[in-house]
Design a protein around this nucleic acid. Structure first.
Lengths: 200, 200, 200, 200
DNA sequence: GATGAATGAGTTTTCATTCAT
DNA sequence: CATGAATGAAAACTCATTCAT
């Protein structure tokens, strides 16, 4: 009786086996040989599951992002105030536990910029929508609870992309940006403006 | 005595001659041969002035950004209100006349992410500081004029990087972001919050 | 399951296939393309088995020297007198059948002088020791048999290197040295001095 | 009034200016640019005086060898016994003061082996003859003085090339040969055999 | 005579991809 | 299904040499 391998599962396994390799090295600097060896498979086998190296990064970012989202969801549930929820949202950009994902995401963004592929764009678009709606929901709830002003709704897109911008800027510059500090400060200042104050 | 050429000037000339090529194609897809032919020089000559292809992108971004900054300065001088000044600032990300520079900047960011080189990081850092101080000056003047609340000062870094973030996001996604619209809307909303209102 | 090749054997096969090419041309004048074509393999395949062209020369010298040593051993067994054994030893430097090996050895020495690599030095050192001990054994047996004076033992290193020196000198000069004649004459003269004479 | 430069003298000057460079680096690893810069001349000027890089090595070996020969001649004049004269002769191969010349000579031999040029062969042949006759003269005088046996004359070529052989072997092996010790020991043993002993 | 900017032929080297087993 | 040996297209890069000034 032949072993029926779950293609999707094996694909995940291969990607996961290469995680450390990818996190610590640029995908361009890696060869299919190294990757296959690390995953404990043959070069030909790699091609059974992936079209090219980029797809490996893609798969892995996908995987880790799902994991990350689950954790984020849990964490968000334990936080009350809108301001804090938004801060939790931004933790992706500086938290220690998202470090691996960030390293991969950086690669992924670079690949997307240099040689955008349809499925990557689709994924990024999907991600953007997903996160956007998530933040929207948080803000909506904040408004409903009377915690923040309705105007907050108009700031969502800008707030969301600010995180991405700071992240990219922090990668490309040296020491000008302290992600955790700068992001949280910005969030605080914005919320000072949009939070309803009793004393007003 | 043999002719002595102005190395820096010739480097600029070569870069400028390749502008259209670089704008319309990814640097990775270009060969040194193509580049040299386009610039009307030999392959070896290219290497006399540039260490590698990346340096060509670097030189060109540098060049066009200087040009862009001059124009921006002029334009800013003709604008009165702080809000409008900030909007002018963001025009880089969507104006037609900065399209070439944007195309190159995209490449440059991707290169910086994939294989950061010291001089690139230094350049980006320098750029960040330069623009940051510029925006800071605009905001400071706005505060001095009593146009905007002092709190605006705290939002500068976030506002600045928001542009970068939206730009990257717009490149990597499809149709989710309308740069001109989204950026200006965000700016407007922020200014609604920080502009001093007579009637308050 | 894909075929598993005997790497070492294939390396030998490739080297042997290039023997004539290498013997009749300087390695520097040869391109990897030519070599691969001659061996009936692709350029990439060459690099699967050899780090560079030098290694090909190295492999071949190694191979032919082993073969040469086997023949030498047989020949030495068929010779009685110490003086003749030593002469057999020197045949490497002028015999017709060692011509190919000599041509390659010349290249090998030149390479070793210009860009010595660790494995080459190790090989040369090993060769030197091996031959030195071989000559030493011959001389020791001659002394034991009472054929030559014990002092001969002190002359071994010099005698051995004399061959190398004459070889190099003959390659670099024109017509000053007749290897076969000059070497044998020298050997004869030395043995006139160190052979035990009945009539003394 | 135009300056008339002595071509031969300027050639020597250029060669001498590059001495340290050549001694400490392989000629193959050096570019014409580096050489010209070191000599303080333009690349084009280099070609006014030398056909190629090899010729530079050639010129320099030539120059230093003349100098070396003068010193050797003086030193030989101050030595009495034949055995010692021969030892002085071999000092080339290990003396500290001939170190630079040896480094260049090594390069020169390698070049001669890899790509022999007519003028190099002629030079080497000339050198061989010159030294051979020199040694011959020393031995002849030794015989005339009754210091050594007439048979010594037959050993000259072998003795001379032994030095070369040991030198090459010492370069290509690691620690097997102690040039000074091994050469002198060999000379001593040979002279024990060919020196006339009173008590005989 | 001197120079050094310009050159491009020629080589090495890499590595994704294929496909026979 | 899995494999890894074989491949060669493709690109970077070097550097001796030329020659206008």
């Amino acid at each position: 009786m032949a072993i029926i391998v779950d293609k999707a599962q094996k694909k995940r396994d291969i990607a996961l086996a290469c995680k450390d390799l990818l996190v610590h090295s640029s995908i361009n600097a890696l060869t299919i040989s190294e990757i296959a060896k690390t995953a404990g498979i043959g070069k030909g086998t790699f091609y059974e599951y992936f079209k090219d190296k980029d797809e490996l990064v893609f798969e892995l970012v996908n995987l880790l992002m799902q994991e990350h989202n689950s954790k984020k969801e849990q964490k968000l549930a334990s936080v009350e105030r809108t301001r804090e929820k938004i801060k939790v949202f931004y933790e992706f950009f500086y938290s220690e536990e998202a470090a691996d994902l960030r390293a991969l995401y950086k690669e992924f963004v670079a690949i997307s910029l240099l040689a955008p592929k349809q499925e990557m764009i689709a994924f990024q678009t999907e991600c953007f929508r997903f996160y956007y709606q998530w933040v929207e929901k948080i803000i909506d709830e904040g408004i409903a609870k009377g915690e923040v002003l309705p105007v907050s709704k108009e700031l969502i897109k800008g707030m969301y992309t600010m995180g991405e911008g700071m992240f990219i800027a922090s990668l490309a510059t040296e020491g000008v940006i302290d992600l955790k500090h700068d992001i949280n400060r910005y969030v605080d200042e914005i919320f000072e403006l949009v939070e309803k104050k009793e004393s007003r």
